[in-house]
Design a protein around this nucleic acid. Structure first.
Lengths: 114, 114
DNA sequence: AGGCGTACTACGATAGTCGTAGTACGATAG
DNA sequence: CTATCGTACTACGACTATCGTAGTACGCCT
């Protein structure tokens, strides 16, 4: 079982979050679980990393937040939801393009052995 | 032309350096030029990043350094050469394995659009 | 003699991640 | 009815890789 170190994924945490928010607005705990699920348990983002990413990305205009109840009747504890902005969508697309290039570059330095 | 941001490559600078040192001992300036060439001009490591990577990796036992003249007759300015250690080779191999996993994980968060 | 390329070193700033800790609400089990 | 577990965060300081800027110094070519 190969562990993924965060220094590697660093630079793509934001992209992962934006990928999830591209489908629908969501909140911290749920995004964290989705990342784990989508990565097939191979990566889990740290809580502090996640929430500080929210702050940063909202400041950069990539996401917007609103506080709401989990269900329309107003039951349950309120959560902070985040949704992607137009800026965020563009940023996400740019990151995807960048990824294709980066992937190929790194690959050239990977030696396939036995 | 997509620019590669260093936060993305971060975590693979060491791997790139070790890849080059797997072939033969080398020194800063040359490694820097090789990285540029191998990446087909798409990535160039900053000098400060490179030299601080040397210090770190030597401390970690991944590389060893020796000072020598560029040619056997003792002409030219002396350079600090680095060579990969056994530890370094193992670390490099582990990084290559990690890469295969990481690549697949990130790929799941990349949406192919128009 | 001057400039370009080579080969570094120094140093402080920045920013993303991490560890640890603590709060607080709601649901469920005993 | 109380304790625990899961949910949903916030605070804060530490760490570290990268970066920007700057400066040194040698050798070679013109």
């Amino acid at each position: 079982m190969v562990e993924i170190s965060s220094d590697v994924i660093r630079g793509y945490n934001d992209t992962m979050i934006l990928y999830i928010l591209s489908n629908e607005p969501s909140y911290g705990y749920n995004i964290s679980k989705q990342i784990k699920a989508i990565s097939e348990e191979k990566y889990s983002i740290k809580e502090t990393t996640l929430y500080s990413a929210f702050t940063r990305m909202e400041k950069n205009g990539y996401i917007e937040s609103f506080v709401a109840n989990p269900d329309p009747e107003g039951n349950g504890k309120k959560r902070t939801y985040y949704q992607i902005t137009e800026n965020g969508k563009n940023y996400y697309k740019a990151k995807c393009d960048e990824w294709e290039v980066t992937k190929d570059v790194i690959q050239k330095f990977i030696h396939k052995v036995d």
